[in-house]
């Protein structure tokens, strides 16, 4: 089935993701897909969850940390600045402490903890994860296109939602037990209602945010995941493994896009043996792709004569992928 047809048959799939190993063209395809959807009159946001994002490079516009930036009619792009997000978040926590207790300054011990926590390796991913929740629950775009991080990272990203969820469930349960004891005491002392547990309220808030994000990632109705592959052995082996893992996390896979296919027309010309050999090699793996993924292969994209940067090249690529 062609890419165009997939989008036409499933207009309810609003969250589109391109994933695959590094450097295979995830950003390029995200940009081209966003361009095509926007030119069909849909309001589209393409955003990157990669700390080393390259949407700025492909659109040739500095959008890093600037929120959604308008690229053209109906098309917005966004690169999340994790550091900026973490700093704002830390300040929010500090301000809350000052407001709650009327301090002039955050106590040393607490300040040290706030700083140490932000140096944790998982902090950056978590911050991006949280920023993405803000983006997707806004819901004001027709399509959200995730320019994902390379495979290993993406799996980490997906599993994070599950791990968080379990963590939150555990501590919420403990908190609720604590609450029961509190209520018991006030009943015995015949006091009036115990005051609301703010921590419990906060935990419930955290849980809704985590669920919002993970339910979108694994929603078979609204989400579609494309794997980007190229006809080479290592890529195919890795992708097959990753696809299995993704399936475990219930990510709905919508298809495979094969990139960097050397145009077969070249065979009619007088080409060097080097190129001929590459075509032969690709033929072998293209056959393999056909047998393993069959109808799930949504498009073959040729190796272009130049790299894809700037709107004009993105337009040309969109034409190749989705037709005129």
């Amino acid at each position: 089935m062609s890419l165009k047809k997939i989008f036409e048959e499933h207009p309810e799939r609003r969250y589109i993701m391109f994933g695959g190993k590094g450097g295979l063209g995830k950003t390029t395809f995200s940009a081209a897909t966003a361009y095509w959807l926007a030119s069909q009159g849909k309001k589209v946001l393409v955003f990157s969850v990669d700390p080393q994002a390259s949407l700025s490079d492909i659109f040739q516009k500095d959008i890093f940390g600037k929120g959604p930036v308008k690229i053209m009619d109906n098309l917005w792009a966004q690169e999340i600045d994790a550091d900026q997000h973490i700093k704002a978040y830390q300040n929010e926590i500090r301000q809350k402490i000052l407001d709650m207790y009327g301090f002039d300054a955050v106590p040393d011990e607490i300040e040290q903890y706030i700083q140490a926590a932000s140096a944790e390796p998982a902090m950056e991913e978590s911050a991006i994860f949280d920023a993405v929740v803000d983006i997707v629950i806004g819901g004001e775009y027709d399509y959200y296109i995730y320019d994902l991080v390379p495979l290993g990272h993406a799996l980490y990203y997906l599993s994070m939602a599950k791990v968080y969820d379990e963590w939150i469930n555990k501590i919420t349960k403990l908190r609720e037990e604590m609450r029961e004891y509190e209520e018991m005491v006030s009943r015995m002392k015949r006091e009036k209602e115990t005051e609301e547990d703010q921590i419990l309220t906060e935990l419930q808030y955290i849980r809704t945010r985590i669920n919002a994000s993970s339910s979108i990632l694994t929603d078979r109705e609204k989400t579609g995941f494309f794997f980007v592959i190229i006809p080479e052995e290592m890529i195919l082996i890795d992708t097959a493994k990753a696809a299995e893992l993704f399936a475990k996390f219930d990510v709905p896979i919508m298809g495979y896009v094969v990139n960097r296919v050397v145009p077969r027309e070249l065979l009619q010309q007088n080409i060097p043996a080097y190129l001929k050999n590459r075509i032969e090699m690709q033929d072998k793996y293209l056959d393999q792709i056909k047998t393993t993924f069959g109808k799930q292969v949504a498009a073959h994209v040729p190796e272009l004569e130049r790299d894809v940067t700037g709107l004009e090249m993105i337009r040309q690529l969109a034409e190749i992928m989705y037709g005129k």
Binding site: Q90, K96, M100, V163, I206, I210
Partner: peptide, 11 residues
Amino acid sequence: PPYYSLRLLPY
């Protein structure tokens, strides 16, 4: 995840 535990810190 230290990210979300920071939210609880003030309390």
